[in-house]
Design a protein around this nucleic acid. Structure first.
Lengths: 109, 109
DNA sequence: TTGTTTTATTGCAATATTACGATAAATGCT
DNA sequence: AGCATTTATCGTAATATTGCAATAAAACAA
């Protein structure tokens, strides 16, 4: 069906899945890594940096922005994107809680 | 097009995206959390635990197994699934490297 | 052997995602 | 005003994902 039955899961499970989905495409990983790498805010050079068309990049940026991981400031005709530090921190703590769970029986299988 | 242009990205970016994709569905998050929660290996009660049909659960398990995050041992007619500790550790380190990057200019936007 | 239980596979329908051309919107420049 | 630059949105085509009924496969039980 292609439709996730969100009602079956806890709020936390749905939230984690939404976050992970954002990282589930290499273009969005590349965008975030570029925003981490450069010294200043990036404006439109993501299109040159990654080999995708401008509307495609814009769409990926929209998703990341919608999730709150990045924010964009309009500067003339350009838009300056960067990581949202506060939201990144929150996301990180959710992800880490999930990743750091103790494995119950390492020798069970 | 619905097709990720993997050639555009680094090996690391593609790998991270593949891992994240596994967590990008609440059913798989729920499966993993259940495997973490229970004391012993789970056999077939995931279908009861999560409210999805048996073929659907089986498909999600297949994806997690393919990625190496879980392993399954055949025990009679049943299959015992559990987290793969070694692969989980490796995956965790990849994810954490990504999450722990330093944010360059917190006040840039 | 026959039936039961459990899991995997197949086939298909419904929905989601990805990518991009065309175009719009907003700003700056001359 | 007219034109260039940059980004967002719309529309659409191609592919991927999700979910399940039906069925197969494998092991056990009587």
């Amino acid at each position: 069906m292609g439709l996730a039955k969100t009602a079956l899961y806890t709020k936390e499970q749905n939230e984690l899945a939404l976050i992970a989905k954002a990282f589930g495409h290499p273009a969005r990983v590349a965008i975030l890594q570029y925003l981490f790498k450069i010294e200043r805010c990036v404006c439109g050079d993501l299109v040159n940096e990654i080999g995708l068309a401008q509307p495609t990049i814009s769409q990926h940026l929209k998703e990341l922005k919608h999730l709150g991981l990045i924010k964009g400031n309009i500067e003339g005709t350009r838009v300056c994107y960067c990581i949202d530090p506060e939201n990144w921190k929150n996301m990180k703590s959710i992800m880490k809680d999930f990743l750091d769970q103790d494995i119950p029986n390492p020798d069970c299988c």
